[in-house]
Nucleic acid binder design. Structure first.
Lengths: 176, 176
DNA sequence: GGTATTTACTTGTTCGAACAGGTATCTGCT
DNA sequence: AGCAGATACCTGTTCGAACAAGTAAATACC
């Protein structure tokens, strides 16, 4: 926390440009929320750019990584692994299937389910996907020491834990 | 929603190499990237839940906050302020207009542009939106001291800065 | 066995995000 | 003045995310 930008501090009118971080007073009510939002947006954009070259859309690569690693899975398993949505998974699988990266096989034990398995063609992508991930990681952690990385990770996880806990907390009133 | 603990669980040796929790080795290639992804997802979900009650969709509230704060703006200005996309802004404005939160007035000086201004009805939402933002901020920073908040913010901004810089860096080769 | 509930998956919808065009209009340059 | 290029905005498309409903099969219960 040595060279923090004065984002949360002052941003007097007039100077306008603000090339690095656009942060009007609109964000003053939630500087950390806003920072999460901006970081996530940038991060997602980079991931999208990296994935685009290898013919995947953001989100699809996570499905593929799980399939490569764990072998054939039911959609429900993937949903649980990715903490995703069944409807989203249905369409993601459909697109991956149409793209030739995935195949569906009826489950031998459950007529409702089908097993999703990566195709041979998809394995050619595996290295590129993993490479892109580590490239993105390098980008985002540039200039950070190992200790700083650990600390950053712990910070992110702490924030995440706060939200996880809030989701489980009945006082949240965010029930649906 | 129901997300298992990412790092809180100690997960002793056990049997497998990575019998960890939400993601196996798939994330090992980019722990920080993955943490950003998860945090952002949760954060977005919470924001969505809070906004849902007040009749806005995630993203729309940012537009409204800028309009409330800065007064009538052209779409281009909003795009620049939010670092967003012109096409996205067009449709977001259309929906906000249809919802009655925004009005369009032709620009007196530029026949191409129109000025977007918040309606009187929209001002009733302002307090709720700001309240939701600070509520979300409280949620995400729960249990953090002021110092820890500052540090967390600085960490987030540092990661963001890395990506901002990478985007400007020609070695990125991500140019079109 | 027969019914109720849960589970696995699908479809429809709306939304933001991003890319690829397309059309006016404005601006800079000659 | 006239033209090239930039600008402001719109439309079409595909994608993930989330919600709502619905179908079929498995499971639980009586």
């Amino acid at each position: 926390m040595t060279q923090s930008t004065p984002a949360a501090g002052k941003d007097p009118a007039g100077t306008g440009p603000e090339a690095s971080v656009p942060v009007p007073a609109a964000a003053s009510g939630g500087p950390i929320s806003h920072a999460i939002f901006r970081l996530a947006r940038l991060h997602r954009m980079f991931a999208g750019q990296l994935l685009r070259r290898i013919g995947l859309h953001p989100g699809q690569e996570l499905v593929m990584m799980h399939l490569w690693e764990l072998g054939p899975q039911r959609q429900t398993d993937l949903v649980r692994l990715l903490d995703s949505d069944a409807a989203t998974m249905t369409r993601t699988i459909q697109r991956l299937e149409q793209a030739g990266f995935v195949r569906r096989r009826p489950s031998p034990t459950d007529k409702r389910a089908s097993l999703i398995e990566p195709t041979a063609a998809s394995h050619a992508l595996r290295r590129e996907v993993e490479q892109s991930w580590s490239q993105l990681e390098d980008l985002v952690t540039a200039g950070l020491s190992a200790d700083e990385c650990t600390e950053a990770l712990s910070t992110l996880e702490r924030l995440e834990q706060n939200l996880v806990q809030a989701a489980a907390d009945p006082t949240c009133a965010a029930e649906r």
